[in-house]
Computed example of a mutant assay.
Amino acid sequence: MQDYQKYATIVALFATMLYGALVVAALGLISLATNLEVLPETDAGPLVGPSMVGGAVILVFVMLLILGIGGPAARERVAVGWAFLTGLCALLIYVFIGALLYAIDTGALVDLLIFTYAQLQSPFAWATGILAMIVTLVYSWILAARVGEHGRPLWPWERRGE
């Protein structure tokens, strides 16, 4: 693994942890501000909500890794389209995992459609997607800013000859 790929992997790991923290904070703050429950379905099990967030976090990590180590370092740029795709996929996986687990928990197939429709209208799913887009955009910007550097990042006092 090249230095650039190691750097991209470590930054992807930290960006994913940031994304997970932002999603949990955003869901809590939106719930407090709007006086809405994140999962209004009272018969949903205790693992439906965390599984939804976990699925989105794992998806964002995979998308960041594909973006970071997928191409050559010289071709890095700010990937607006990739960020939009990541946000859309995070929103969809958040809703799909929740709908699937809720339908399995209740045993009714029609609950899958009802849950999906309700989640697509809630601000929580959209916050998950928007935050994924923002984190991916910042991640690609950080990688693009490092193009042309070799090795580890240097402090200003370590660059005496420049």
Rank of each mutant, 00 (worst) to 15 (best):
155 W>G: 05
15 A>C: 15
54 G>F: 13
38 V>N: 00
151 G>M: 00
86 T>S: 14
42 T>K: 13
158 E>R: 07
110 V>C: 01
8 A>V: 07
34 T>N: 05
152 R>D: 11
80 V>I: 06
62 V>M: 06
129 G>H: 13
8 A>N: 10
143 L>T: 10
46 P>E: 12
17 M>C: 11
148 G>H: 05
60 V>D: 03
76 E>D: 14
50 P>V: 10
118 A>S: 12
7 Y>Q: 13
76 E>Y: 15
61 F>Y: 13
41 E>A: 14
87 G>Q: 05
16 T>G: 08
125 A>T: 12
153 P>I: 06
34 T>Y: 01
73 A>Y: 06
152 R>P: 08
100 L>Q: 00
80 V>M: 01
121 Q>N: 10
121 Q>R: 11
5 Q>S: 14
67 L>M: 09
144 A>M: 06
87 G>S: 05
95 V>E: 02
69 I>A: 11
91 L>S: 02
96 F>Y: 13
31 S>N: 08
157 W>Y: 07
132 A>C: 04
101 L>P: 09
110 V>E: 08
95 V>W: 04
6 K>V: 06
72 P>L: 08
29 L>F: 11
138 V>C: 02
99 A>F: 13
123 P>A: 04
7 Y>L: 14
100 L>P: 00
52 M>V: 00
138 V>I: 14
138 V>A: 03
73 A>G: 01
112 L>G: 00
158 E>H: 09
87 G>R: 07
134 I>Y: 07
74 A>T: 12
157 W>E: 09
124 F>W: 10
114 I>F: 09
42 T>G: 09
5 Q>G: 10
45 G>M: 08
50 P>W: 13
53 V>A: 14
95 V>I: 12
143 L>G: 07
115 F>L: 07
125 A>H: 05
137 L>H: 01
140 S>M: 05
58 I>C: 06
40 P>V: 02
101 L>E: 06
38 V>T: 00
25 A>Q: 09
107 G>I: 03
69 I>P: 08
129 G>Y: 15
158 E>N: 05
147 V>E: 00
111 D>C: 08
35 N>Y: 07
92 L>P: 03
120 L>Q: 05
68 G>H: 03
52 M>E: 08
25 A>L: 15
